[in-house]
Design a binder for these strands. Structure first.
Lengths: 165, 165
DNA sequence: AAAATATGTCAACATGGCTGACATAAATCG
DNA sequence: CGATTTATGTCAGCCATGTTGACATATTTT
C-alpha cells in the first residue's frame, strides 16, 4: 500500500469512528424512550423539513416502505409526528412533528450540534488538513487516544499534534 | 433556529448522507457473498492491523463479544481470517487475514478509497469550506441533486456552486 | 494455590433491514 | 367515463446484527 493510499485508508477509518461516535449521544437518549436510531432519523428529517411526504423519507433514508412504516407508525401513535393530507394531492400524507416531537427532535440534535460545532472549530484553522481534523475531532475525546494509538500502528504521518484537544 | 445553528444542522445531515453512501458500495459486494456490514468491519480492521486481538476489535467496534463472535466465526470458517496464539501471552488469539481475506478486504476497500480520494480532491482547494465540500462530495453523484434539493428547502446559504461535479 | 484475564459459548431477545403480495384512494390519461 | 398510474398502507415472514447474562476454559499473575 502506497503512502497516498495509506492516508486515504486512514480517512476511511476516521469516517467509521466519526460516525460511530456521532450516533452514540442520541442513541443513549432514545434508549430511555424505547426508540432506536431509525426513529431518530425519521423524527429528525420530519422536524427539519416539515411537510415531508412518505415518499420523500423513503428516498432520503434509502429504506423500504415496510421498514419506514414500522417506526413511523410508532412515532405517530405516541404523538411525536402527525399527518395531514396534501392540500393539492390528497393521496399524499404530509408529515409534521407535534409539539412533543419538536422537543424530542431538538433534544436529540443538541449533542450532535455541539459535537459538530466543536469539530468544525477544530478544523477551521487547519486549511488543507481541515477534513481529517474535523473527522478526528468528531470522535469522543476519551476515544481519540485509542484511535490515534491504533492508526499510529500502521503508519508514521499521523496528525499527532492533534490529540486530546 | 439561528443562522449558525442551521449550518451545523446541515452538517449533521451531510454526515448522515456521506456515511449512508460511503457504506453502500461495499454492501453491494458483501451481499454477493452472503456477508454483511459487520463482516466488513472486522475484515477491514484485521486486514489493516494484522495481529489485532479480539479485545482490540471489541473496543474498536464497540459491540459485544457475542455480536463479534458470530461474524468472526464465519470469517474464520470460510477461510478469510485465521488466528494464532499470542507468542508471549498464549491466551490471546491474534487475528490475521488469509490470502483470500486480504483479497476481499482489498476489493471492499477499493470503492471507498476512490470515493474518499475524490472527496478529498474536491475539498482540497476549498480552504474553510473543505469539510462541507468533502462530505458533500462523499455523496453519490446521482444523489447530490436530491440532497441539495432537500437541504435547499430549509435554508438559503447552501453551497450551490458545489453541485454535480 | 488463588485470583484475574482473554477468550469462547449458549440461550434468548429486540431492532431494523429485507421481500413480495395485495388493498385503497386519488389523480391522471386516453 | 373508464382504465391506469400513483401514493400510501398493510400483512406475513425472513435475516442480520445488536443486546444481556451466565458459564467454561486456558493461561497468566499475584
Amino acid at each position: 500500500m502506497g503512502h497516498a493510499e495509506a492516508l486515504l485508508a486512514q480517512t476511511i477509518e476516521l469516517m467509521f469512528f466519526a460516525y460511530r461516535d456521532f450516533t452514540s449521544d442520541p442513541d443513549a437518549i432514545l434508549a430511555e424512550r424505547g426508540f432506536g436510531r431509525a426513529h431518530h432519523r425519521v423524527l429528525h428529517f420530519v422536524s427539519r423539513y416539515p411537510g415531508l411526504r412518505v415518499a420523500d423519507l423513503l428516498e432520503i433514508l434509502k429504506i423500504t416502505k415496510q421498514s419506514l412504516a414500522r417506526v413511523l407508525k410508532q412515532l405517530i401513535e405516541e404523538g411525536f409526528i402527525e399527518q395531514r393530507s396534501g392540500p393539492v394531492d390528497r393521496r399524499e400524507r404530509l408529515l409534521y412533528t407535534t409539539e412533543a416531537g419538536s422537543r424530542l427532535a431538538r433534544k436529540l440534535m443538541e449533542p450532535q450540534l455541539e459535537r459538530v460545532a466543536d469539530a468544525l472549530r477544530a478544523a477551521a484553522s487547519k486549511g488543507g488538513e481541515a477534513v481529517e481534523a474535523f473527522l478526528f475531532a468528531m470522535i469522543d475525546p476519551a476515544e481519540r487516544g485509542r484511535v490515534l494509538g491504533l492508526i499510529g500502528r500502521s503508519r508514521a504521518d499521523v496528525p499527532a499534534d492533534e490529540d486530546e484537544r
